[in-house]
Design a protein around this nucleic acid. Sequence first.
DNA 1: ATAATTGCAAAGGATTTGCACGAGT
DNA 2: ACTCGTGCAAATCCTTTGCAATTAT
Lengths: 152, 152
Amino acid sequence: MDRKIVPKKETRKLLDKMSEYLVSKGLKSTKQRDLIATVIFESKGHLDAEALYQAARKQDPKVGHSTVYRTLRVLRDSGMVSERHFGDGPARYEVSREGEHHDHLICVKCGKIVEFENEEIERLQEAVAAKQKFVILHHRHEMYGHCAGCSK
Amino acid sequence: MDRKIVPKKETRKLLDKMSEYLVSKGLKSTKQRDLIATVIFESKGHLDAEALYQAARKQDPKVGHSTVYRTLRVLRDSGMVSERHFGDGPARYEVSREGEHHDHLICVKCGKIVEFENEEIERLQEAVAAKQKFVILHHRHEMYGHCAGCSK
DNA sequence: ATAATTGCAAAGGATTTGCACGAGT
DNA sequence: ACTCGTGCAAATCCTTTGCAATTAT
């Protein structure tokens, strides 16, 4: 298999990580997987499957929707990419950065998405869960409203 | 229009409130709307459209899916019912209690849903939004994990 | 060689919509 | 009377799947 794309350094690392994951699972590396993964790795995140599909098609007009969804599943299962469901619409994907967690502020007017992190909230969350004897695996915390530009 | 159902007191109040809303919007009261609304008003919440449809059909086997969805929209628009999207699955509905807000803890194993309220978190949230100059309209805060019974 | 992957089109689940008929005001 | 609501089936959106052909190991 030969790669047609020329990814940058960070992307290369991520591709290698994916490759390791594939080997460890007895799966194969394909140029489609590399292509789609590269698109995500080099994006600014919060893209949906359709956007990924369009972007991938610019490099290789033959990739199908299924391959995009299937690659997304591999990436999701490997923990390298996280899937988010904002509002109803399609799922959005973003690279999960090393041991980092963040939540989102979403502008319902212009669609702008801002990430935030707040340890105090995380702590309180744990306390709430503990009180109910829940063991938290993951959470989702989204705030919808108007961003600075849209609330003028 | 005649009502075939015999709702309890609290439900009656809610039905009246819906009725007022309908009049105010130039919409009509129908036995289907009353039936579907009664099912929600008397439920323990977190039901999806299909469950509502099944329950309504026990009283009147002719109600269609569309009527359920359309009634849900009316209820949602009136603010009497809130729609939640947990994970991906179908939307879940619950009666919005007077000026009250709560978030959820969801057991990914047994599906149990526990509500929680934490003012401190709400305050911190506002602070986070303010820092980004966002005006929050609503938010969603869910924690997924194992409940006491499922983590043994 | 063997087993996994691809692209396509068809199937799926959840929700919405067009339309002719029926019901509330 | 007039307008809105209903039920059905068809349509839509997002995602998954079956399958025969192709490709990585």
